[in-house]
Write a protein that binds this DNA or RNA. Sequence first.
DNA 1: TCTTGAGCCTGTACTCGCTACAGAGCCTAT
DNA 2: ATAGGCTCTGTAGCGAGTACAGGCTCAAGA
Lengths: 137, 137
Amino acid sequence: MNSHLSAKGLQRHQLARATGCHLETIRYYERIGLMPDPPRSTSGYRVYDEAHVRRLRFILRARELGFGIDEIRGLLQLVDCRSQTCAEVQRRTEPHLAEVRAKIADLQRIETTLVTMISQCSGKNVPECPILDALAA
Amino acid sequence: MNSHLSAKGLQRHQLARATGCHLETIRYYERIGLMPDPPRSTSGYRVYDEAHVRRLRFILRARELGFGIDEIRGLLQLVDCRSQTCAEVQRRTEPHLAEVRAKIADLQRIETTLVTMISQCSGKNVPECPILDALAA
DNA sequence: TCTTGAGCCTGTACTCGCTACAGAGCCTAT
DNA sequence: ATAGGCTCTGTAGCGAGTACAGGCTCAAGA
């Protein structure tokens, strides 16, 4: 007879595959309210559609960009209630950019330190380690 | 009589204050072996010195830069075993450097994305926000 | 001297953002 | 009819801390 899924519905593993998301993470996002509770087939299987795919991609990309769950919740609220605006999203995004830049700067500093140390260690014994001072300073 | 701390020893909260570290985190690092078990006063209080301050700063800075505990353990081994040859130091440092560079690259990708999105965003009070669209795409 | 209050001690439980698993049910193919 | 692979639920575990309970110690003030 009918498949247990209606016309174009996706199963959980299909949604996972379509987004690169871990299987269990989908359920987790539903539990914490980032993803909506999806409709169910007669036997209780979750049934997803393209809207779910897009929303999950949004969440995953935002996570990748370093947004925390609560920040994403905020961004999704902007998506959900279209009353809010571009200005608001920009306001939320800018501090995040500053943070990313600070991290880059920090890492470039340690990169320099590591490079320096490696170049200083060309074949002799190491009486002291410059990493400690560079980091602890 | 004597203070319960010897000459220049620091108490836990003093070490915390000197490094900006959370009080309990110090104990945690001791438990997992990143920080050594410090000497104790007669009544069992931990007694720290400048070496502890420097080591803890090292750890905190490395954590801030995204190193995992095990990576930091590796870096600290470089610090601890100063009797090793340069070749050995290099061998153990280079993977860390590669990792730092990979992180920088990732963060720069994120930075570019955020900059692009913000610049496309008008900042006006309109509901069509390119950041949301860029993320959801 | 006694009391107060801040600091210390230990152990354990909680957080966040997942991830894994147990034990059950369902669906399709052979 | 049975094997296998998927689904369901609930719950436990992880890393890296953070918080708290219940008790001990110490320095300073009344």
